[in-house]
């Protein structure tokens, strides 16, 4: 078991590639990416986002994750003291492998988005029997 002491990590603001029409804050979510023979798996931290407010797209091998927080959670709250700001999340990844688009699985639990991207069959390593 990992018992490392957790440290504060500053939220990283998204550097905009195209200009936005409004100045709402957008952050780059912390992400773990790992793979096995069959799939590529992403775990993305999106605290404060409901599963219905996550949009995932895979187009031209660019995977984009767009997650919106609920500003209404802060209705009528007067901020007294602050250590972090609140904003939406956005991040893109270029996929190096061919993915079975129709079989992508996504779930959100405790503010973590888990994406399972199955690799296209022919790319899985195959054992060739030597005759």
């Amino acid at each position: 078991m990992n018992t490392k002491e957790l440290e504060v990590k500053d939220k990283k603001e998204l550097e905009i590639t195209s200009e936005k029409t409004y100045s709402c804050k957008v952050y780059v979510p912390d992400t773990d990416i790992y793979e096995n023979d069959k799939e590529i798996i992403l775990a993305v931290d999106i605290p404060g986002v409901n599963k219905n407010d996550v949009k995932i797209q895979l187009e031209n091998s660019i995977l984009s994750i767009d997650a919106k927080v609920r500003p209404q959670d802060y209705d009528k709250l007067r901020p007294l003291y602050s250590e972090y700001n609140v904003g939406h999340f956005y991040r893109e990844f270029r996929m190096g492998e061919m993915i079975e688009k129709d079989k992508i699985d996504a779930s959100v639990k405790n503010g973590v988005l888990k994406l399972t991207l199955p690799k296209i069959e022919k790319l899985k390593p195959k054992q060739i029997a030597v005759r």
Binding site: T3, K4, E7, D30, D32, Y34, D45
Partner: peptide
């Protein structure tokens, strides 16, 4: 048997 490409999320105690 995980082959990590990116590890940004933190685990541990506080």
């Amino acid at each position: 048997d995980r082959n990590y490409h990116r590890r940004e999320r933190l685990f541990g105690t506080f």
